[in-house]
């Protein structure tokens, strides 16, 4: 994934100002900065929810700028949301199954007549989903309604759902939000494991510095839509502009 000179304005306010990013395969990249710095806007622009005003986004060598969200997803970009967006009244299994629907090749006639192709693919899909749920540790909760899960499980389910898409790039929007120290330590291990297991490149937005420190190979710091620093966390941590940006933020 490569982003060049990305711009996005909302009613004259520059939400993203000439943003550049180069993601290295198999690495975890952090996007940090105070609230309102434009981090989620970058996610939404990468995934096609917003159309950029200028700039180019390339993924696997292809220009994906301005594609629709489902097209970006189909190319292999999975994501989670800051304010968890599960299919709330469906159960855990269904949440994962929906995300794997792209694996399915049967057509309406196969399903209407319940032909072997339908049965075979549905069975394979459920097995794959079950395996994934085992990995994330939700195997005992397959029938539970998604919005009845405790918060931490909901975060995990959302990540599992994103992974069920078979992505090569995973975008995580504040995965540790609302978690205590203990939970975020566990989350760090969890993300590492998922990343190795599914051979993912990860771009994550995070406020918890210990999570960032534990995971990110590289960080980009944003403030008011502008990139103010970029590099390894220990390199940027003492950057004067970064310290200023965070003054009064108590993070």
């Amino acid at each position: 994934m490569q982003i060049n000179g990305l711009n996005k304005n909302f009613g004259g306010v520059k939400a993203i100002d000439s943003f550049n990013l180069q993601l290295e395969k198999g690495k975890i990249h952090g996007l940090i900065g105070p609230n309102g710095a434009g981090k989620t806007t970058i996610f939404n622009t990468i995934t096609g929810i917003y159309k950029p005003d200028a700039g180019e986004i390339r993924f696997k060598g292809k220009d994906v700028t301005g594609l629709k969200p489902f097209q970006v997803a189909q190319l292999g970009v999975g994501r989670t949301f800051q304010n968890i967006r599960l299919f709330a009244t469906l159960n855990v299994m269904e949440n994962v199954l929906i995300a794997s629907n792209l694996d399915i090749t049967y057509n309406m006639l196969d399903s209407f007549l319940r032909l072997p192709k339908y049965k075979k693919e549905e069975k394979a899909l459920r097995e794959k989903a079950m395996e994934l749920l085992k990995i994330v540790g939700l195997q005992d909760l397959v029938d539970a309604q998604a919005n009845s899960l405790p918060y931490g499980h909901q975060r995990k389910l959302e990540i599992a759902r994103a992974v069920a898409l078979n992505p090569s790039l995973l975008l995580l929007d504040e995965p540790a939000a609302g978690m205590n120290k203990e939970e975020s330590v566990e989350l760090v291990e969890f993300i590492k494991e998922i990343k190795e297991r599914f051979d993912l490149t990860v771009l994550m937005i995070e406020h918890h510095m210990d999570v960032v420190a534990g995971l990110c190979d590289h960080v980009t710091v944003l403030n008011f839509g502008k990139t103010i620093a970029s590099g390894r966390l220990d390199e940027v941590k003492n950057n004067k502009m970064v310290v200023e940006a965070y003054l009064g933020e108590e993070k």
Partner: peptide, 11 residues
């Protein structure tokens, strides 16, 4: 259930 998320999983 959640149109934005449906989009995000390639639907």
């Amino acid at each position: 259930e959640q149109e934005v998320a449906a989009d995000a999983v390639g639907i």
